[in-house]
Design a protein around this nucleic acid. Structure first.
Length: 609
RNA sequence: GCCUCGAUAGCUUAGUAGGUAGAGCGCGGGAUUCGUAAUCCCGAGGCCGCGGGUUCAAUUCCCGCUCGAGGCUCCA
């Protein structure tokens, strides 16, 4: 519900003509005039229909609160549809407005209600003092929850070698951590530029906005899709090696299920709701829902634990604020690897937590992306497990930012967040590990203890890479950061084209194609620039495509065993045999996943996406 | 969600003090068969984001919407 509260000297209205949805009224209600009134212009919205009583309660509380603060003599409830673009049904709106009127009356507040569904002329005179104009968005959520969030504030430290240091006193030798700290403490200044990855993702033919979808949903072109698939393969191998069991679960859930609804509500307004005639569904914002449902229907014993369930959420949905959605960094639909580990007790969860820290750090090394770390815990947890926390922070090998929360307000008691820093100095939150002490009970996940008692487990949430889109985002941002030091490029194992062959003239074409086929047989992603262009132009195009290795084929190559390879990273030319070239690519891609290039071998046959 | 700014060919954009528009890249055709960051010539391609208003006339001015960019979070 939207409410605009105006403390007025006077309000006058006069009904003009009926609309189809007009309520029946007596003649005396056809006009009215009030003095020293708090006028509540009100629009009832679709989502209010789900819990009308809750909305009424909160609206009345809010109106009464402002009423007493401004010292008005009466309240006028004025239906005003123009405050919202998502209106409820007229019947629901009438009911809610009538309820608000009668509940205010019960509180001994003089209240009037202006008729619903009529065209009216009105005149209002705003008093103009600081509280005389207020707008409120009212939901059915309990207001206590909101107040709690605003309670005592977190304490922030830099945790370095077991020492707690106030951020303002810490001598940052690491620029990334300094920027992360500034950002978290709300002290970073913004430059007002677009992050460079947005242009890059379009320019390199990876992904683009899809205006015909909702904001924050992308279309992926073949090259981008290839990179996503390679990253998906990477995480799959990483977690299955650690004993994780992959599953796949639905992307939408019925809010009629209590556990689902309560877990969903932790997410507040950012839920993606899917209205349906009878059911109210939500789109998942992570894989928790599916994993927990699977676990709760499984029979677990202490011998099964720790049990690791993995899913790549293509997609997860979050209704991020419109103005916050940008490029690959913040989306409404994104892909996230999600590992849930069911642990017997807190002790076991801490052992697993440490292993997962290792996993997260390893992804940073494999992607060659620097992460800075925020370690968070409730005060109670920190006090009790200080030693473990210090030891775990030590694993990072550099200072970390530490947040101590006065009390638990989420499902987790401790979590570690890893963030890369983008070109503009802002964090891209990537991997995370969290200790969840609530969901076991809420989703009725139980296991049989050694003593034959049923018990609720501790559950770890872990995304060892963070969302796939954000991984790509950090890789692209990194190229922009390092632009001055070296030519921008993706890691060779993620480069769509790893080797490009440039025949100089028509007569070199057969040799080029034969070479390409051989490289392809060795699992190298190769293509041939067969277009009738000059070498200079083809070289230039290969460079703008960030191709790591370029082989020019001319008369010399036809006659000798050697190839001349342009190496992008070092900008050197090196003579080598075919075998050497394959070896070089293999060495550079070092055990990382491989997929073939899903595009025509010949550039002349490619579509320009 | 709110505020500010923007939207012209597939892409990057110039321009019109109101009289329906040019360029580069890309694309198609032709010539060139060439050794390391753009070969030359020709051609096609535009409801100037969408809807409404003002006007004899709107891509241009005004309003609304959509999409994008940045910022913001009850503060005017």
């Amino acid at each position: 519900m939207r409410v605009l509260l105006i403390h007025s000297d006077y309000l006058k209205y006069q009904t003009k003509s009926k609309t189809k949805i007009a309520e029946k009224i007596d003649d005396e209600k056809k006009k009215g005039s009030f003095e020293n009134s708090l006028v509540a212009f009100t629009a009832v919205e679709k989502e209010d229909e789900a819990d009308m009583q809750g909305v009424v309660e909160n609206a009345v509380k809010e109106i009464a609160d402002v009423f007493s603060k401004v010292g008005a003599e009466n309240v006028v409830v004025y239906p005003y549809a123009h405050l919202s673009s998502s209106l409820s049904s007229p019947d629901a709106a009438k009911k809610i407005l009538i309820e608000i009127e009668s509940e205010l009356a019960e509180m001994d507040i003089k209240v009037a209600r202006v008729p619903f569904g009529w065209y009216k002329s009105f005149e209002v005179s705003c008093k103009g003092h600081p509280l005389s104009e207020l707008s409120r968005t009212i939901t059915s959520q309990k207001t206590e929850e909101k107040e709690k969030e605003k309670g005592e504030e977190s304490k922030w430290y830099i945790l370095d070698e077991g020492q707690l240091i106030a951020p303002e006193e810490f001598d940052f030798y690491n620029k990334d951590l300094e920027q992360l700290t500034k950002y978290e403490l709300g002290k970073s200044e913004s430059s007002g530029e677009e992050p460079p990855h947005v242009k890059l993702m379009k320019e390199k033919g990876l992904a683009d906005y899809e205006p015909s979808a909702d904001v924050g949903h992308l279309r992926w072109y073949p090259k981008g899709r290839l990179i996503r698939d390679l990253l998906a393969d990477y995480v799959y191998l990483l977690v299955t090696k650690e004993g994780a069991m992959p599953v796949e679960t639905p992307i939408m859930y019925d809010l009629a299920d209590d556990a689902i609804r309560v877990h969903a509500e932790k997410f507040g307004e950012r839920q993606y709701r899917l209205g349906h005639k009878k059911k109210e569904l939500m789109l998942r914002y992570a894989c928790c829902f599916g994993a927990f449902r699977v676990l709760s229907d499984s029979f677990l014993t202490w011998k099964n634990l720790p049990a690791r369930i993995y899913e790549l959420s293509t997609y997860s949905f979050r209704m991020e604020k419109k103005g916050e959605v940008v490029g690959l960094k913040r989306l409404r639909g994104f892909t996230m690897p999600d590992l849930h580990t069911v642990c017997r007790d807190l002790g076991q969860s801490l052992v697993e937590f440490d292993r997962q820290i290792d996993l997260c750090m390893r992804t940073g090394e494999d992607f060659n992306v620097n992460y800075e770390v925020i370690f968070r815990a409730t005060k109670d947890f920190y006090d009790e497990y200080k030693e473990w926390m210090h030891a775990s922070a030590q694993k990072i090998g550099k200072p970390v930012l530490l947040e101590i929360l006065p009390e638990r307000k989420n499902y987790w008691i401790s979590k570690m967040d890893f963030a890369a820093i983008d070109y503009l100095g802002r964090p891209i939150e990537n991997p995370t590990v969290q200790i969840d002490v609530e969901s076991g009970e809420r989703f009725d996940i139980t296991f049989l203890e050694e003593n034959e008692q049923e018990d609720y487990p501790i559950i770890l949430h872990c995304s060892p890479t963070g969302s796939i889109e954000r991984v790509i985002c950090s890789l692209l941002e990194k190229t922009a950061v390092e632009m001055d030091e070296k030519p921008p490029m993706l890691p060779v194992w993620l480069s769509p084209t790893q080797v490009r062959i440039l025949p100089i003239a028509e007569r070199h074409m057969d040799y080029a194609l034969e070479l390409a086929r051989e490289l392809k047989d060795h699992n190298v992603r190769v293509d041939v620039d067969d277009r009738p262009e000059r070498v200079g132009k083809k070289i230039r195009n290969a460079a703008t495509d960030w191709v790591p290795y370029v082989a020019v084929i001319g008369d010399n190559e036809l006659e000798s065993e050697e190839l001349t390879i342009n190496i992008r990273e070092t900008q050197e030319k090196q003579a080598m045999t075919r075998e050497d070239l394959v070896k070089l690519v293999k060495q550079e891609t070092n055990e990382m996943p491989f997929r073939a290039l899903p595009l025509p071998l010949k550039l002349s046959e490619r579509i320009n996406f």
